Simulated scan of single mutants.
Amino acid sequence: MIPVFDGHNDFLQRLVAAGRDAAQLWRQGDGTGHLDLPRLQAGGMVGGFFAIWIPSPSGLNDDAAVHMMENPPFALPLPAQITSDAALPHAFAQASALLALQRTGTLQVVRDAEQLRTCLAEGKIAAILHMEGAEAIPDMDALHLWYGAGLRSLGPVWSRPTRYGHGVPFAYPAGPDTGAGLTEAGHALVAECNALGIMLDLSHLNEAGFNDVARLSDAPLVASHSAVHAICPSSRNLTDRQLRQIADSGGLVGLNFASSFLRPDGRRLPLDDLGVMIRHLDHLLGILGEDGVALGSDFDGALMPRDLADAAGLPNLIAAMQTAGYGPDLIRKIACDNWVNVLERSWKG
């Protein structure tokens, strides 16, 4: 089975919600969501980025939002900024839940490339602590504290503003050019992440902020869970110009599995044909090359394709790549090796 290293999941929210049953949820599953240890093992998933994400109080009824996203065109309002005081309890709970999984002996939170490669060689799930939106980082001292706790990947924004920059709203059809660039604090964040070796994640960042990171950062540009705007013109997807900038930096894009970012019609309905994912991969490969394309599922955070309903379905995507004529070396790069290589070039030590 070809190993899969995944660029993004939101499993930690389910883990926190499980409370005292969290270890059992991990070890056995509960029949819900997309991830647990048995399904990771069944799908050949050897590790990935485990995201801390802060829920956003919504001014739009969830059912109404889903209805709009199922019936484009739509443009959801951008949620309001969240204070660090409101964000910290959620962030601490999710980070603590991941560290508790480490104590089960089945998973290792990796902090450098040597740990990552050792973990993969020993067959233990390799977890990278990621933060999707920097609300829980009020200043650079806090960034150093989170680095000490194991943070190795950071998205300055989710799809809302932070003190560092501005996220794209969920809209279709729409582009990512939706507002101002990074703030002065955002410039400092980029510099400090570069100095520490924290990978910066461009997914969810608007175009002006993307441009600022591309100008300021000395690390490879990375979008952990995004798709191709030329195929699905969602505000969350990357334009060809952005893809070329990532390619020029020696960076990487992890293909998002979210059906609404894959389907050309932008509808939030399950994708029926994994061939559409191959179209996205072909497009990414054409611009980024064989070393710049990976996977970023968004498991437990999005609506999955029918034939990729959870982590156990990953062999179906591998089979679709094989059917499309991808050779074993290329599939191995996309599924696993490209993530390991870009992390080696992004981290310090």
Rank of each mutant, 00 (worst) to 15 (best):
Q115K: 08
Q115P: 09
L116M: 15
R117C: 07
T118K: 15
C119Y: 05
E122Y: 10
G123I: 06
G123W: 09
G123D: 11
K124G: 10
K124D: 07
A126F: 11
I128C: 09
M131N: 11
E132M: 08
A134E: 02
D139V: 07
H144V: 07
W146I: 01
W146Y: 03
Y147C: 01
Y147F: 14
Y147N: 05
Y147K: 02
A149E: 03
A149H: 08
A149V: 05
R152D: 03
R152L: 02
L154D: 02
L154K: 01
G155H: 04
S159Y: 00
R163L: 06
R163E: 05
Y164K: 01
Y164V: 00
G165M: 01
P169F: 00
F170P: 03
Y172S: 00
Y172L: 01
P173W: 04
P173A: 04
A174M: 03
A174H: 02
G175I: 01
P176L: 02
G179P: 06
L182I: 03
T183D: 00
G186C: 06
A188P: 05
L189Y: 00
V190I: 13
A191V: 04
E192D: 12
C193T: 07
N194S: 05
A195T: 03
A195K: 12
A195N: 10
L196A: 04
L196C: 06
G197N: 10
I198F: 08
I198W: 05
L200T: 06
D201T: 08
L202R: 09
S203G: 12
L205M: 15
N211L: 14
N211P: 02
D212E: 11
V213D: 08
A214Q: 08
A214E: 07
R215S: 12
L216I: 14
L216Y: 11
S217H: 11
S217W: 08
D218R: 15
L221G: 12
V222S: 10
A223T: 07
S224C: 15
S224E: 13
H225F: 15
A227V: 11
V228I: 14
V228Q: 14
V228P: 13
H229S: 14
A230W: 06
A230F: 03
C232T: 15
C232F: 13
P233E: 10
P233Y: 13
S234L: 09
S235H: 11
S235I: 06
S235D: 11
S235T: 09
R236H: 09
N237H: 07
N237P: 10
T239R: 07
T239I: 09
R241T: 12
Q242T: 06
Q242N: 06
